[in-house]
């Protein structure tokens, strides 16, 4: 079979997360891989419009997968206009996801900026499901403002099993905001990682990951224990089109999740 041949999928449910972000519950053809891991992605698209890499925001649940998409360009704006019952095309799963086996048995620190919470959501789900396999689990979550927070109706369930810290760049709604205001790096002191035992998964804009990773290192964490998920332009997802290349790595195949040690200091990157 052609590795670029997409499968048909049907939008079973669409949930508006923020003004420009929606979560799609997608039913895929039975032939689609059963082996998905958190942090992997699909190439999602529509014929005539193109394809874009989109992370799994949930893995198989009731025969469906989840994608959380922000409308920013050709493909994502087109998806934004689709309705429940509409068809789209996707192919995958691609890439290396979060190293769950490395995290097991250790404290886990999850740091998400903006839409970065989407690729961490399957991690959170896995933690909730097998809570005993992990030590202390904390989630630091940053957004531009309260209106940009994702998955807000799930926080309560999360809080029962992991610690959740929220921050916004600025509070804009005028409603009481019982959490932090300021950059996400400001939250790092709230968790005080047990430096030897902790493993950190960080995802968000590259500049945010830069400062979070530096912050973690300053607090004694080793670069080998920090993992980041990179975003690059992607056309194929299968290490052939070259678009996602980053200093010799194919982000689509060698990543998108990398050990921080592997990608820090590379040219054309910010980490």
């Amino acid at each position: 079979m052609h590795p670029l041949k997409p499968a048909k999928a049907v939008l079973k449910n669409i949930r508006q997360e923020t003004a420009d972000v929606k979560t799609y519950t997608v039913q895929v053809d039975g032939a689609f891989s059963r082996e998905l891991s958190p942090g992997q992605f699909n190439m999602v698209g529509y014929p005539g419009v193109g394809e874009a890499p989109i992370s799994f925001s949930s893995l198989w649940e009731d025969g469906c997968i989840g994608h959380t998409v922000r409308s920013v360009g050709a493909v994502t704006a087109f998806i934004d206009k689709l309705a429940e019952g509409d068809e789209l095309l996707l192919r995958g799963p691609y890439g290396k996801g979060w190293p769950m086996d490395i995290a097991k048995g250790r404290d886990l620190l999850l740091v998400a900026g903006g839409l970065g919470l989407a690729p961490l959501r399957p991690v959170i789900r896995e933690v909730l499901q097998s809570r005993d396999s992990f030590g202390t689990v904390s989630l630091l979550c940053g957004a531009r403002n309260e209106k940009n927070l994702l998955f807000t109706d799930e926080y309560e369930a999360w809080r029962k099993k992991i610690s959740l810290f929220l921050t916004v760049d600025e509070a804009v709604t005028g409603e009481p905001w019982g959490h932090s205001v300021g950059l996400i790096t400001g939250l790092l002191d709230r968790v005080k990682p047990d430096t030897a035992g902790t493993c950190a998964f960080v995802v968000g804009p590259e500049i945010m990951m830069r400062f979070v990773c530096r912050g973690l290192m300053l607090r004694g964490m080793q670069p080998a224990d920090i993992f980041v998920s990179l975003e690059r332009r992607m056309k194929c997802g299968v290490a052939q089109c070259g678009h996602c290349q980053h200093a010799g790595f194919f982000v689509c195949r060698d990543g998108p999740v990398f050990p921080y040690a592997q990608v820090t200091g590379l040219m054309d990157g910010m980490l």
């Binding site: 005539g48 419009v49 193109g50 360009g73 050709a74 704006a77 087109f78 206009k81």
Partner: peptide, 11 residues
């Protein structure tokens, strides 16, 4: 022209 017909952003 096709982008207008398909209601998508032209590339």
């Amino acid at each position: 022209l096709t982008s207008v017909l398909a209601q998508k952003k032209p590339g």
